[in-house]
Simulated scan of single mutants.
Amino acid sequence: MLVINARLSIPLEEIELNAIRAQGNGGQHVNKTSTAIHLRFDIRASSLAEDLKARVLLKADQRITRDGVVVIKAQQHRSQEANREAALARLADLLARALHVPVTRRATRPSRAAKQRRVDDKTRRGGIKALRRSLDD
Results as ranks from 00 to 15, higher is better:
Thr123Ala: 15
Arg125Phe: 07
Thr33Ile: 08
Ile37Asn: 05
Ile64Pro: 01
Arg124Met: 08
Arg112Tyr: 06
Ile37Glu: 05
Arg78Val: 02
Ile43Val: 15
Phe41Gly: 03
Asp42Met: 01
Ala130Ile: 08
Ala60Arg: 00
Thr35Gln: 06
Arg44Ala: 13
Asn5Gly: 02
Val70Gln: 01
Arg78Asn: 05
Gln62Thr: 13
Glu16Met: 10
His77Lys: 10
Asn18Tyr: 08
Val69Trp: 09
Asp137Cys: 08
Pro110Ile: 14
Ala54Trp: 00
Asp120Gln: 15
Ala107Gly: 01
Ala36Lys: 01
Asp42Trp: 04
Leu58Gly: 09
Ala6Ile: 04
Gln28Pro: 01
Gln23Gly: 10
Ala107Glu: 11
Arg90His: 12
Ile43Glu: 00
Ile15Ala: 05
Ile64Tyr: 03
Val56Met: 10
Arg55Gln: 04
Val70Cys: 02
Ser34Gln: 14
His100Val: 14
Arg106Leu: 09
His38Asn: 13
Val30Gly: 00
Val119Asp: 08
Arg109Trp: 09
Leu95Met: 03
Thr108Met: 09
Glu14Ala: 05
Leu58Ala: 15
Gly68Arg: 08
Arg66Ser: 14
Lys32Ala: 01
Ser9Trp: 09
Arg125Met: 09
Arg117Met: 12
Lys115His: 14
Asp61Cys: 00
Arg7Gln: 13
Arg84Trp: 02
Asp136Pro: 02
Ile20Ala: 02
Ala87Gln: 10
Ala87Gly: 09
Ile72Pro: 04
Ala107Asn: 08
Ala107Thr: 13
Asn31Thr: 05
Arg106Glu: 13
Gly126Asp: 12
Thr65Arg: 05
Pro110Lys: 14
Ile4Leu: 03
Ser134Met: 10
Arg106Gln: 13
Val119Phe: 10
Ala96Ser: 10
Gln80Pro: 06
Leu95Ala: 00
Gln76Met: 04
Glu81Val: 13
Arg117Trp: 07
Ser34Asp: 12
Leu12Lys: 07
Ala54Tyr: 01
Gln80Phe: 09
Lys53Gly: 02
Asn31Trp: 00
Arg112Asp: 09
Gln75Phe: 02
Gly68Asn: 10
Leu2Ser: 02
Val69Ile: 15
Asn5Ala: 03
Ala114Tyr: 03
Arg109Tyr: 11
Ala113Thr: 13
Gln28Asp: 07
Leu48Trp: 05
Ala45Ile: 02
Gln28Ala: 11
Asn5Asp: 15
Asn31Leu: 01
Leu12Trp: 00
Asp42Gly: 03
Met1Lys: 09
Leu95Val: 07
Ser9Phe: 11
His38Lys: 11
Ile37Phe: 07
Arg63Leu: 06
Thr35Ser: 15
Ala87Ser: 10
Arg90Asn: 14
Thr108Ile: 13
Leu135Asp: 14
Asp51Val: 11
Gly26Arg: 05
Lys53Glu: 02
Val56Gln: 02
Leu88Tyr: 04
Arg125Asn: 12
Ser46Thr: 08
Leu52Asn: 04
Ala49Arg: 11
Val103Asn: 04
Gln116Phe: 11
Lys73Ser: 06
Ala82Gly: 06
Glu14Tyr: 00
Gly27Glu: 06
Leu12Thr: 08
Ala22Ile: 03
Gly68Ala: 11
Ala6Leu: 05
Ser79Cys: 04
Ala86Trp: 04
Arg55Lys: 12
Gln62His: 12
Asp137Gly: 10
Arg109Met: 12
Ala92Gly: 07
Ile4Val: 15
Gly26Glu: 05
Arg63Trp: 01
Leu135Arg: 14
Arg63Met: 04
Arg7Leu: 09
Met1Asp: 07
Thr65His: 07
Ser111Leu: 12
Arg105Ala: 11
Ser47Lys: 11
Lys122Gln: 15
Gly27Cys: 10
